[in-house]
Amino acid sequence: MNDRGEADTSSLSDAEQSRLLDIARSSLKSGLSAGRPAEVDLETLPPRLREPRATFVTLEKNHNLRGCIGSLQPSRPLAADVAHNAFAAAFRDPRFPPLREDELPALEIHISILSPLEPLEFKSEEDLLRQLRPQVDGVLLADGFYQGTFLPSVWESLPDPHSFLRHLKLKAGLPADYWSDTIRAWRYTVEGIRGPAIAK
């Protein structure tokens, strides 16, 4: 586990990690040229890249967030999920304008491969806070129709569990001081892969 809450990526070889980065890069280029994600030929990929996995793709420009879109539950093969989310992070994140080609040289791609969601059992907000593992856990919080998640990397800017949870509630559309007996929470870890948007 590194200081960004990313698990050891030894489950994927260097070649497999590089292939996922290439797929993300291709999806950015396809979005710029054709307005759609890159098509992934699954038959040419190793088995682990064809397994259903949930991913997030985060784009950073000069170390600032430029887009982040992901999946919490596995619904597509790993490679296809990366292609879909890379395109969506670049062109469908409502917080940012669509990516321009002249931004590519300053862009870095971060791929987060999620572990299965682990439900947390707690009796109070303090009980939940005690269970959170700073720098390790990604957290999904939900209450009714309200839902939000923070990847483990968010601990870098919100290292205090109380502040982390308050901001997560805001992201979910809830007041920062909100609490209810119906709140549910899950945690997960991620395998992290990162590289420049233009291969060196």
Rank of each mutant, 00 (worst) to 15 (best):
P196K: 07
A197Y: 11
D102Q: 13
A106P: 01
F164L: 03
L170D: 09
E156C: 10
E6Q: 11
E126L: 10
L128Y: 03
E126Q: 10
P94L: 11
P161R: 12
D41K: 10
G138R: 00
Y146T: 06
R187W: 04
K123M: 11
P94N: 11
P52L: 09
L78I: 04
G67W: 01
G35Y: 06
L174D: 00
R4Y: 02
A172D: 06
I23Y: 00
P196H: 08
L20H: 09
S124G: 12
P175D: 01
L129F: 02
P46N: 07
D177F: 12
R130V: 08
E6R: 10
P97H: 11
F91W: 02
S153K: 07
L128W: 00
L28G: 02
A83L: 06
P46H: 01
N85R: 12
L117Q: 13
A79T: 13
F164V: 09
L72M: 15
D41C: 14
L158H: 14
K61H: 07
A185L: 10
P175V: 02
S112V: 13
Q73I: 13
V40I: 11
E101R: 15
G173S: 12
A80G: 04
Q147Y: 06
R95M: 10
S11R: 12
P116S: 15
H167D: 10
A199K: 15
L45H: 02
K61F: 12
L20F: 01
P98S: 11
L170A: 14
E191F: 15
T189C: 07
R187C: 07
E121W: 01
K169P: 06
S180L: 09
P116F: 13
P52I: 11
F150R: 00
N2S: 05
A176L: 09
L59R: 00
L128C: 03
L28Q: 03
A38F: 06
R36N: 05
D177E: 14
S13H: 09
N64P: 00
D160Q: 15
G148P: 00
N62K: 13
S33K: 12
E118Q: 15
L117I: 15
I198Q: 15
A106T: 12
S11N: 01
R48A: 06
A106C: 04
K123D: 11
A142W: 05
R130N: 10
P94K: 06
A80Y: 00
V190Q: 07
F150H: 02
G67Q: 02
R50H: 03
D22V: 13
L129C: 08
L128Q: 05
P47D: 13
S157F: 07
K61D: 11
E108Q: 14
K171A: 12
Q17P: 04
R36H: 12
L165E: 01
R53I: 05
I113E: 05
I113K: 10
S112N: 14
D8E: 09
R187E: 02
H167P: 05
I113V: 14
K61T: 10
A79D: 07
P152A: 10
G148M: 07
K123P: 02
S18L: 12
W179R: 08
L42I: 08
S10T: 02
L168P: 01
L65W: 04
Q73K: 15
Q17T: 05
D102C: 09
S27A: 13
E126R: 04
A54K: 04
K169N: 08
L107Q: 06
F145S: 12
T44F: 05
E51A: 15
A142E: 14
E60R: 09
L158I: 10
D160T: 06
Y178H: 11
V139W: 01
